[in-house]
């Protein structure tokens, strides 16, 4: 069963539109509803901001649409727009929601109510509280995917590549071998056992910078440049990398497909996660 995790649009606050390649990819059958024949449910992590058309686009993708509140959503307006789309519920825009897909309980939240947000231990605590196997959270504006304590944590990044006012990332000065290590922790065979070994101490690393893993050669070159002239500040990127995630679940196995648009081309990466029985 396919579950789409997507969020942090910021239309029109920070960007004009969803990348057209994403639109085509996501809704091959538009304007028919549902516009994607394969996706069973859509989980939206909020920050639509003020775009009713984007909301409709997401709503029409699959038979089942779930959305949680993002930091910059207008609760009042968004609730009514959802009602206009037929979502009648006393609270159509909660802070978090739990859905199921095959043997998985999936929780998702924009996560801005966690202080400090994006902290793996806090996310783990929240996943424990609501008792989920997979926790999807938003607001990072880059893809993250890692396992911790046998649970799977996913941040699908920003679908539009909107910028964020968080600190720009510090280029990590790891050696290449270290990166290779991280890569193997994400490989399917290790995913099961990595839970316990990964979390203590070096938290920053355990976030296992997914984006970096996927970044192409030129970023490594940048890194080298950085080493040559450590005083030089990296220029800020105007936008982040547009991305979203698809979860393909079969029983207790979840294959995560990470879609990113780099230099106008769509790249797909795959990460596997096997749930502890």
């Amino acid at each position: 069963m396919l579950t789409l995790a997507i969020g942090d649009f910021f239309i029109p606050e920070r960007v004009i539109e969803l990348p057209s390649k994403f639109c085509k990819l996501l809704s091959p059958n538009a304007p028919a509803v549902p516009s994607n024949p394969k996706i069973a449910q859509v989980l939206c992590l909020g920050n639509i901001t003020q775009s009713a058309s984007t909301l409709r686009f997401l709503n029409d993708l699959s038979p089942s649409f779930h959305i949680v509140r993002g930091e910059f959503d207008n609760y009042n307006i968004l609730c009514q727009q959802l009602a206009n789309l037929g979502h009648k519920s006393s609270n159509p825009l909660p802070f978090y929601k739990v859905v199921t897909a095959d043997n998985f309980r999936i929780g998702f939240t924009s996560g801005y109510q966690d202080v400090p947000r994006h902290d793996p231990l806090l996310l783990l605590t929240f996943a424990r509280e609501i008792d989920v196997d997979i926790l999807i959270w938003g607001g990072a504006h880059h893809v993250e995917a890692y396992t911790l304590d046998g649970k799977f944590f996913i941040n699908p990044g920003s679908a539009t590549g909107a910028y964020t006012f968080d600190w720009p990332e510090i280029e990590e000065k790891d050696d290449d071998e270290d990166e290779d290590d991280e890569e193997t922790t994400l490989a399917p065979s290790n995913a099961k056992s990595s839970g316990g070994s990964e979390d203590q101490g070096d938290k920053e690393e355990s976030e296992s910078d997914e984006v970096e893993r996927k970044l192409s050669e030129d970023d490594k070159e940048k890194e080298i440049e950085d080493k040559q002239d450590p005083c030089e500040l990296e220029p800020l990127e105007e936008y982040s990398t547009p991305s979203f995630c698809l979860l393909d679940t079969h029983g207790s196995l979840c294959t995560l497909y990470i879609y990113t648009q780099v230099n106008g081309e769509i790249k797909v990466d795959k990460v596997m996660y096997q749930k502890d029985e």
């Binding site: 239309i11 029109p12 606050e13 004009i16 003020q50 775009s51 009713a52 058309s53």
Partner: peptide, 10 residues
């Protein structure tokens, strides 16, 4: 009307 405002923002 909201759509119009959205377009202006764009």
């Amino acid at each position: 009307f909201l759509h119009t405002q959205e377009t202006i923002c764009k």
